[in-house]
C-alpha cells in the first residue's frame, strides 16, 4: 500500500468542480430525489434496495478508479503512469492503494447517501428505511471493499472492454432484484421471450453467484446452517480481483513515446 497513491486518489476527486458536484450528486442529490419519489414504504424499500445493491457501490468505485489504472485520462495515461512507475512503487502496491482508496470513497459516499435519505424521509414524516446499526455498517464496509476490488479489475482492462463489462455488470445489478424470481408459466407468452427471460435469469444468477462479491454478514452469521463457504467466497473474490488487477497491470507496457 502506498500512502501517496491512496491519498492522491481520494484527493483528485476534489480537484475539479465537476467531480465534486458529481460526488455530491451521488451522495446527496440521488437520495433526495429518491426520497421524494418514495411515497410509501414499499417504493422506498424498492428504491433503497436498488441503490444499496451493488449498483451505486460500483458506480462510485468506478469513478474513484477513474484516474489511471488503465487507458483513460485523455489517452495520455501511458505517459502519466510511466512517470509514476519510474518511482519506487510496485504494481501490486498501486493496485492495493487504488482499491483501498476506492473502498474509502464508496464507504463515505454511501454513508452520506443513507444519512441523507434517512433525514429526507424523517423530514417528510416517513419511516427510515435503512437503520444504521452494526449489521448495516459492516455490510457497508465489506461491500465497499469487495465492489471496489471488482472495479479495480474492470479498470485494469483495456478501456473499451472495461466499459462494456462495467455496463453489463451495472445492468445485471439493476435487474438483479427483478430477476430474483422465475415466472411460474409461459402460457400466452411467446416462447422466444420466455427463453430470453430464462437466459437473463441464468446470467443474472451466474453473475450474482460468481462475479458480484457482495456479502450479507447478518445472513452469514445468523444462519441455522452455518458454513464458512460464504466467508471464503467473499475473501477469495477480493484476493482474486486484486491478483487479477496486479497481473494485468504488471503485464501492461507503457509506451510513452511516438514509436
Amino acid at each position: 500500500m502506498s500512502p501517496a497513491v491512496y491519498l492522491f486518489t481520494l484527493w483528485v476527486k476534489f480537484s475539479s468542480m465537476s467531480s465534486v458536484l458529481g460526488l455530491l450528486f451521488l451522495a446527496i442529490g440521488v437520495p433526495i430525489i429518491l426520497s421524494s419519489v418514495a411515497v410509501d414504504g414499499k417504493t422506498a424499500d424498492l428504491l433503497v434496495n436498488l441503490v444499496n445493491g451493488p449498483t451505486l457501490a460500483m458506480a462510485i468505485s468506478y469513478t474513484f478508479m477513474q484516474d489511471n489504472i488503465a487507458n483513460t485520462r485523455q489517452m495520455n495515461d501511458g505517459e502519466y503512469l510511466s512517470l509514476l512507475f519510474a518511482r519506487p512503487l510496485t504494481r501490486s502496491q498501486y493496485i492495493v492503494s487504488k482499491w483501498l482508496a476506492g473502498s474509502t470513497g464508496v464507504f463515505i459516499i454511501m454513508m452520506l447517501n443513507i444519512l441523507t435519505f434517512n433525514t429526507a424521509q424523517t423530514l417528510q414524516g416517513r419511516n427510515t428505511v435503512v437503520d444504521l446499526n452494526f449489521w448495516s455498517m459492516s455490510d457497508l464496509i465489506l461491500n465497499a471493499l469487495s465492489y471496489s476490488a471488482l472495479m479495480v479489475v474492470i479498470r485494469s482492462f483495456p478501456m473499451r472492454l472495461g466499459i462494456a463489462v462495467f455496463i453489463i455488470l451495472v445492468y445485471a445489478s439493476l435487474i438483479g432484484p427483478a430477476l430474483s424470481f422465475s415466472m411460474s408459466s409461459y402460457e400466452g407468452a411467446i416462447p422466444a421471450v420466455y427463453m430470453i427471460f430464462q437466459a437473463l435469469v441464468f446470467i443474472s444468477n451466474f453473475l450474482h453467484h460468481f462475479v458480484f462479491p457482495g456479502i450479507d454478514l447478518f445472513e452469514v452469521l445468523n444462519t441455522t446452517r452455518f458454513s464458512v463457504l460464504p466467508l471464503v467466497t467473499y475473501v477469495s473474490n477480493i484476493l482474486m480481483y486484486l491478483l487479477l488487477g496486479t497481473v494485468l497491470l504488471s503485464r501492461r507496457e507503457f509506451s510513452y513515446g511516438e514509436e
Binding site: S15, N76, E79, Y80, L83, A86, R87, T90, Y256
Partner: peptide
C-alpha cells in the same frame, strides 16, 4: 527492481503532469 527505482529519476518527454495541482 525497487532498488533501481529508488536510485533513479526520470523526466518524460512530454510533461503530462496533474494539471489541477
Amino acid at each position: 527492481n525497487l532498488r533501481v527505482k529508488e536510485l533513479s529519476a526520470f523526466l518524460p518527454e512530454r510533461p503530462n503532469f496533474d494539471a489541477w495541482m
